[in-house]
Design a protein around this nucleic acid. Sequence first.
DNA 1: CATGCTAAGTTGGCGAAACCAACTCAGGTG
DNA 2: CACCTGAGTTGGTTTCGCCAACTTAGCATG
Lengths: 157, 157
Amino acid sequence: MDEGSGTGSVERCSIARSLEVLGLKWSLLIVREAMWGRTRFAEFRARLGVAPDVLTDRLGRLVDAGILERRPYREDGEREREEYVLTDAGRALVPVLAAMNAWGDEYRPSGFGPAAIYTDRETGEPLRLAFLAADGSEREVSDVAVVRGPGALMAAP
Amino acid sequence: MDEGSGTGSVERCSIARSLEVLGLKWSLLIVREAMWGRTRFAEFRARLGVAPDVLTDRLGRLVDAGILERRPYREDGEREREEYVLTDAGRALVPVLAAMNAWGDEYRPSGFGPAAIYTDRETGEPLRLAFLAADGSEREVSDVAVVRGPGALMAAP
DNA sequence: CATGCTAAGTTGGCGAAACCAACTCAGGTG
DNA sequence: CACCTGAGTTGGTTTCGCCAACTTAGCATG
């Protein structure tokens, strides 16, 4: 997954750079589980049904990318083991998950209603994602256009 | 990619359902290119450097999922061909791309500045994604909690 | 009317990634 | 010291992605 839009070896597109670490199968679902508070190998494995070798690989990549942090823990009467907790960078993926969640709810409904709701941590009231202008006013998705920024200096029609 | 959180055969998690169609390599990058206005096989191919057989497969899946629409076109002096344009469901993926973009800009910077900016289609002013409460007030990402909705009726600690 | 051009794909072979079951490993308990 | 548990490895098979080469359909040109 390289080349294409860019001229050099560095991927200029932030989406592509995000996908370098999140684009492999299971990566985002592991982050989703971590958001629910799962931290342990066996929990991820049981919840997701992912093969153990793949899970080992993904946890390692997410740690390397700074999304998860390996941290020792000890249950009483057990030996010391490692668990995986979200870092700030990992928690910053909430909008990505929320956006996917909202799209899936809308365009690929399960028939059971939404499985996850994003809420205010204190009041518990539901939140939604929206585009805001600098003055705080909201814009509809249909009013949003994508334009090139400084990182995109390729010539194209 | 099934089972895990659910008991039956329908995937209860909207994120997993979104990933069923968007989670394969190249799918989201094809949607990104479509947002830039690319519509043709050769354009996707040249921009992304994706193998033609994979591109055929992904375009077909995106069409089946209702994200892209196949539409005939004809350049003068050319034969009729097909192009691929975003549907409403496809354009509704803007928040997903914007969220990934913002995360990549912040946590995996390229050193060239952002390659894409999401703007108001009319005024051109830059927009950002934010969580809003029902009254329109904004919440920080760190104030967001994920809770179970009606679609998640699994018992778990 | 054969020849070539172009966009949009197929086809076939190969290496990497994912899957699955079985096995290992380290420490703690009875 | 036999056994249990969580956290992984290992080996073999299937699927996926990559690449180069080939095909196909219509129009245009000689």
